[in-house]
Amino acid sequence: MSVEIWCIAEHRGGVLDADTLQLLGAARKLGGTAVAVVCAADPAPLAEQLSTSADKVIALRHEALSDFTPGGYAQAIAPLARERQPGAILMLHSHFLGRDLGPLLASRLETGLISDCTELGWDEGLVGWRLVYRRKLLAKQKAAGAPPHMATCQRGAFMPAEASDSPGEIENLEAAIEADSLGWKVLGFEEAEVGDEDITEAEVIVVGGRGVGDQETFDSMRELTKLLGGALASTRPVVDQGWADRGLQIGSSGKTVRPRLYIGMGVSGAIQHVVGMRESDVIVAVNKDARAPIFEYADYGMVADLKEILQRLVEQLREMRG
């Protein structure tokens, strides 16, 4: 029997985050037994769903697991991980599990956590590859000490595990959680703001990044969107500066768009932005820095000052349209 690799399932409101299957894919690629671990107040439906892709499912049940709290998940998983010593524990580098639970569980298990991996391997322990210094370097990192080693996986970096004909066995366990010691009280959940225009519906999107430099230049991009019959959107820093409403933000903490045409100006191409736009049909990027990562995702690139390009796009489109 090969080493077990535990993949912590991400879910909210009874709905499985489908990217969890990428963890199972990563576990298989590592040559391990892909074990899905699901923590919930009623894990049965999720466990059933996971069993079609996992070699095995561990379903941890407790009332206190009805909401995600890092403390609750850690109390459910840590003792079992100590007892069974899986080879590795994987989770998504998500806001929910990756950022809160990952380091917490690593601390409780006194083990190393390799963050935001795009590739994993074994070399007398778990090794992970991750992009650092704004994607300018690739770091190969190794977890020190005794297993279970841990890693968080970048969304989209691994192929999801395929469903198999024989569902994995489900093991149901009652978790032991001290509900008073969680430190978190969940008050409520609120959906993201949509804003006046729904950018997810637009066929053409012009995106201003931090490189636009000021509110005026960002606003002036509306001329171009009007001529193209599209919508104006932005990266996160543009929203943080107050130049755009939050509803216009594209990326992991904003909207995911898939227009026929995406034109990005002054956008560097950080992964948190790219995950929200890389499925666009045709991608055009304007950046003054020839090494900007956005050019790796674009179909057409221009190394130029965006203001010069913006002005000429407006002029030439006006001419074209008569």
Binding site: G112, V132, Q141, K142, A285, F295, E296, Y300
Partner: peptide, 16 residues
């Protein structure tokens, strides 16, 4: 708890 064993340039990707 985590050691960086190697730094390298990311493999070049196809550019625009």
């Amino acid at each position: 708890r985590v050691e960086t064993v190697e730094l390298s340039y990311p493999p070049p990707r196809e550019l625009a």
